[in-house]
């Protein structure tokens, strides 16, 4: 029983991480049709800069972590928005080329990060409480999972509120469904594009900082590691659906944890099989729109 609880909660924690990265991917694809391979790069740079600033302000404390997180979100948002504005926008409607540009950007940025920060992982300090565990019903659960879950829940809530209550949120929701009709109502969707990239970048940035807490280090490859899973989660949940991404994140991560424990470390394999299965049975994912 305690094992099951442990697996579920650690799965939720991992799922929280996946969601933070996948939320941006889902919205970006849903609204713009762009497969953003550079999303991992947003995550990584936010993690690096967030860590650099945080440790200089106050290393290993809650205050330092908060600063890291805020800086990470801002960096993520800015870098993402800049990417959209300078690169993606030039290739309006040419989805393959847009995806290719993000591939090139991912390639170049990982190399750049390795050049600046080196190829070895850099270990990060974190607040004392996060290194400890809490006992619930016999299961010893690492505390950082709670932080992850809490942050992901807050981000999910914030994005949903934004989508439901603001005008830009309304435009984005309509645009995900039918972009040309939004234009036919006299609305310039392109501004929403930058906004969506920024939101996705901010979430990814937070995810990056939290990933450095979860894994205990930052490295140039931090983003690529998570990106593949984020893609899988996005596709299973349905490209363009935020709630789909949330549900899929939880399902995939928990499945992964269980498979790792009960089926001898085959978590990765099981997730991949699940992806193939979903795509073949229900290609649009759990909650994706019908093409």
């Amino acid at each position: 029983m305690s094992t099951v609880l442990l697996l579920v909660i650690t799965g939720l924690g991992l799922g929280a991480l996946y969601f933070l990265v996948a939320s941006g991917l889902s919205l970006i694809y849903g609204l713009m049709g762009v497969l953003n391979f550079a999303h991992g790069a947003f995550l990584t740079i936010a993690a690096f800069i967030g860590w650099e600033v945080g440790r200089r302000v106050s290393d290993g404390t809650w205050w330092g972590l908060l600063v890291s997180a805020l800086v990470g979100m801002i960096v993520g948002a800015v870098v993402a928005a800049a990417t959209e504005y300078f690169l993606i926008r030039r290739l309006y409607e040419r989805h393959i080329e847009q995806a290719l540009i993000t591939v090139g950007l991912a390639l170049a940025s990982v190399a750049l990060f390795e050049g600046i920060w080196g190829t070895d992982p850099i270990y990060t300090a974190k607040p004392e409480w996060l290194t400890q565990t809490t006992e619930i019903l016999g299961a010893r659960i690492p505390n950082d999972r709670f932080l992850l879950i809490a942050c992901a829940a807050v981000v999910l809530g914030a994005i949903v509120l934004f989508l439901q209550r603001t005008r830009y949120g309304l435009i984005i929701r309509a645009g995900v469904e039918n972009r040309s009709m939004v234009t036919a109502l006299g609305i310039d969707v392109r501004r929403s594009f930058t906004l969506v990239f920024a939101i996705g970048g901010a979430a990814a940035g937070l995810g990056g900082v939290l990933a450095s807490v979860y894994y205990g280090y930052v490295s140039a490859h931090l983003g690529s590691l998570l990106l593949i899973f984020a893609f899988i989660v996005t596709v299973i949940g349905g490209l363009g659906s935020l709630t789909g991404a949330a549900i899929a994140s939880v399902l995939v991560a928990v499945l992964q944890q269980f498979a790792n424990f009960y089926l001898g470390g085959t978590g990765d394999l099981v997730v991949v099989i699940a992806l193939a299965a979903v795509l073949l049975i229900r290609p649009r994912g759990l909650m994706g729109k019908v093409a």
Binding site: L87, E97, L100, I101, G104, L107, A108, A111, E114
Partner: peptide
């Protein structure tokens, strides 16, 4: 970093 040059080159080509 050769991959950086490659990636940038690629972006420019696209």
């Amino acid at each position: 970093e050769p991959l950086f040059i490659l990636g940038t080159l690629f972006i420019l080509v696209v």
